[in-house]
Design a protein around this nucleic acid. Sequence first.
DNA 1: CTTCATTAACGTCATTTGTACACAAAGTAT
DNA 2: ATACTTTGTGTACAAATGACGTTAATGAAG
Lengths: 224, 224
Amino acid sequence: MTDYKTPALTVDVVIFCLREQRLQTLLIKRGVEPYSGKWAIPGGYVRYGEDIDAAALRELGEETGVHNIYLEQLYTFGAPDRDPRGHTVTVTYFALIPDENITIEAGTDATDAAWHVLDELPDVAFDHKEIIGYAHERLRYKLEYTSAGFKLLPREFTLTELQTAYEIVLGEKLDKRNFRRRLLEADVLEKTGQYRSGGEGRPAMLYRYHAKADPQVKARRLYP
Amino acid sequence: MTDYKTPALTVDVVIFCLREQRLQTLLIKRGVEPYSGKWAIPGGYVRYGEDIDAAALRELGEETGVHNIYLEQLYTFGAPDRDPRGHTVTVTYFALIPDENITIEAGTDATDAAWHVLDELPDVAFDHKEIIGYAHERLRYKLEYTSAGFKLLPREFTLTELQTAYEIVLGEKLDKRNFRRRLLEADVLEKTGQYRSGGEGRPAMLYRYHAKADPQVKARRLYP
DNA sequence: CTTCATTAACGTCATTTGTACACAAAGTAT
DNA sequence: ATACTTTGTGTACAAATGACGTTAATGAAG
């Protein structure tokens, strides 16, 4: 193999979660230069011989203690000046996780890890603002035409909870009956047979995700 | 910057073109090991300090003589064993070009460059079969819900030519009136005022692309 | 225990969108 | 001039979407 000097390669992960009725993303406070003290999305160098998806999962685990989540590749950013240390190309991912028993632990390179409300972000390092923006757009788009919203909820959830998740992400109220019809017709939810008691009002049926044919994307074709 | 050994970084480009009423892609015959003598999609190493999009355009020009075309990032493949020379991550792109005055010239690393009908591909090097498949899927998807098909045609074209392009890519016949209505409503075409004479039958109005508001994607939202 | 407040569950109808389909107009070839 | 080929256009019907109000099940308050 001819040994050209190649750019460094990193992975970065934008994680979304619904907390306190707001869409939030996980940032780590950098403990080293450059941008020491600034917030950044979790990520790090891809090791030689390591699959990039695996690297994303590993970095996520190391820096935040979040394990076993579904990642989706987002985009690769490769402007030569995006990292002051030298040319660094980053493959970005995005993830949806439910807000439950997640222990965030700051890792080696990070002095802190914390959730941030998406539209009240602090100054972030590198071009991470752009990356988060891109991920946010993709998330909205995804919920507009798929039934992937349940990934933001615990394993079992009510239809109202699911609808609220959609409403928060999309930033608009949805019609309850039409929402239900759509999601039930998508055929990815199944009743658990149990009800959520506790709160006020009539108890709601609990559902869980169950892909019978895992269509996921329910985009409409422009031509028959 | 801590000097980890990072994977090598390449770019690869899948170019689509309609030639002789078939969807074709441009491959180069490799002149060096590994896979010497096999066909591969054009691409090569990203230089240190070079933007990845620029690298894709440069490699394309060097290897095929194709310049100034619109590229869209496709996906980044990073399995550690995808290149026998060592761990090499590749950022892939896809492009649509019209079949007109394109001079293909084999460049340095390639002994030959030629168009290949998409469903009669030879054995290709690396994981390029998978990449081409992925690009093909994206192309079909793109034409299903956008009006990007004109990128496969010369600057001026008739609606019948455009419809034929869609039919070839999508692999199905489309209704003439519905097709026209859809594309004209998309509001990205304008009449040139001229007609294509020459052939048999009634001369057809020539159109050209003209993005007034460049919506490009005309996807339908799942929620109001 | 009754009443009230709160949330869940459900169906219909008007409108919009999608799909199928046929014939006249404008040329060219003979 | 006649036959042939290709372009260009509208409508009726089916399907999907969007707006909308009432009853049912529970907990809280009196």
